[in-house]
Write a protein that binds this DNA or RNA. Sequence first.
DNA 1: CTCAGATCCTGTGCGC
DNA 2: TGCGCACAGGATCTGA
Length: 271
Amino acid sequence: MPELPEVETTKEGIKSHLEGQTIKGVTVRNPKLRIPVPDNLDQLCAGKKIITVFRRAKYILIHLTKGYLVIHLGMSGHLRIVTAKSEPEKHDHILLMLTNGVILRFCDPRRFGLFLYIDENPYQHQLLAHLGPEPLSNEFNGHYLRQKARNKNKPIKSLIMDNEIVVGVGNIYATESLFLANIHPTTPAKILSESMCHVLATQIKEVLKQAILCGGTTLRDFYAFDGKPGYFSMSLKVYGRKNQPCLLCQHPIESLIIAGRNSFFCPKCQN
DNA sequence: CTCAGATCCTGTGCGC
DNA sequence: TGCGCACAGGATCTGA
């Protein structure tokens, strides 16, 4: 489900409900996630205060008076702010209860997500230590992308979805930004000129910014902290539009599997 | 090292 | 209406 805009929307939504509050306790209803939830999570969290809530890549980080919670939504996860009387449902695996009666609920049907506690600086943790730059930072630009692409033979779509190159660009936004940049998704990364890399980096930033403004993309199961969908799906230009006319030239949109992921493109506009 | 493919898991949506 | 199959927004591991 979530790419960077959805995670950003979630983080922004829960932030004000959590910061400054104290954790009463944690209920783990199902610890079986991509990495098992620590079985002493309740002891690790109870009584601690939440200092800040922030995001790095697709991870949501909760800085406690001591230690951090590291949350990843995987493919199908979402977080929701609810009140104590709200009954948890089947896939609500973790309930983080605050002393003021508010509960943060972690729901993840496919269980590809994560909910961990770490003591150390999260940026040094195994999961985050090797991540590339944030796509909306100045560090990520055409020159940087060209340097990373120049010796890579793999499709440009796979390159921009590689978290060590740039974080947060998943299948939808990789597909959309390549369309906006007029670059065919299977183009070997190394043949892209610096100016094409500049256009691509610019379009990645644009499409992510627009999606964040819309509250993310809801295709099927993404809902924000308050249960509302994201509206960027209205703005998708190629994703999911196989056989429909290209919005620029009317040629039917085609699809291809690239590195196991469905990819949509206009063969005329993206040559 | 580089890249493609399989894999973890459940729900949904489609075709028969 | 019911059933089975293909597919889904991610990330990591394996092996060619």
